[in-house]
C-alpha cells in the first residue's frame, strides 16, 4: 500500500455480544493489506480491549482507524462518563466495572494496561461527564 486507508466503525453499547466486531474487521483488513502478523495481532488485541471498555463503561462510541504503510493510528472515542484518574485507571488490577462484567470475562482491570502493553504509543484524553478519547499507534 502507498496511500493512507481510513475506516470508521460504530461500536454499539447496547449489546456485549457484538463487542469486538470492529476489531475483527480491522484485523481482516490488515491481513488483506499484508501487514506483519505481529503488528496485526497487537492492533487487534489493543483495539478489542478498547471496544470492550466502550461497551462496559461508555455505552458505545466509535473507532477511527488510519492505516499507513509504516504504522496504524487508532482513535477510540466515546461520550461516556469519563475517567476521573487516568493514572489509577492505567494500573493493572484497578477496575470500576460492575460484578456482572466480571462474570462475562472482563473487568479485571487489565484493559487499558493491555492496550499500553501492545502498542508503541498511547494517549488518553478524558473529561468527566463529556467522554474519553484513547489514541493508540502500532508501528509495522
Amino acid at each position: 500500500m502507498t496511500e493512507k486507508v481510513t475506516k470508521r466503525y460504530e461500536v454499539s453499547g447496547a449489546d456485549f455480544t457484538h463487542a469486538g466486531e470492529a476489531s475483527g474487521k480491522v484485523k481482516a483488513l490488515l491481513k488483506q493489506i499484508g501487514y506483519s502478523p505481529d503488528a496485526i495481532r497487537r492492533v487487534a488485541i489493543a483495539m478489542y480491549e478498547g471496544e470492550i471498555n466502550m461497551v462496559i463503561h461508555a455505552n458505545g462510541g466509535y473507532v477511527l482507524a488510519e492505516i499507513y504503510p509504516d504504522r496504524i493510528d487508532i482513535l477510540l472515542e466515546d461520550t461516556g462518563p469519563g475517567i476521573a484518574d487516568i493514572g489509577l485507571a492505567m494500573q493493572e488490577g484497578y477496575s470500576t466495572a460492575p460484578d456482572e462484567v466480571r462474570s462475562l470475562g472482563f473487568g479485571a482491570g487489565m484493559g487499558l494496561a493491555n492496550m499500553k502493553r501492545y502498542t508503541d504509543a498511547m494517549r488518553i484524553e478524558s473529561e468527566i461527564g463529556v467522554g474519553t478519547k484513547v489514541y493508540i499507534t502500532v508501528k509495522s
Partner: peptide, 8 residues
Amino acid sequence: DMMSDALA
C-alpha cells in the same frame, strides 16, 4: 476464565 488475562 478472564479474557483480559489471556489477552495479556
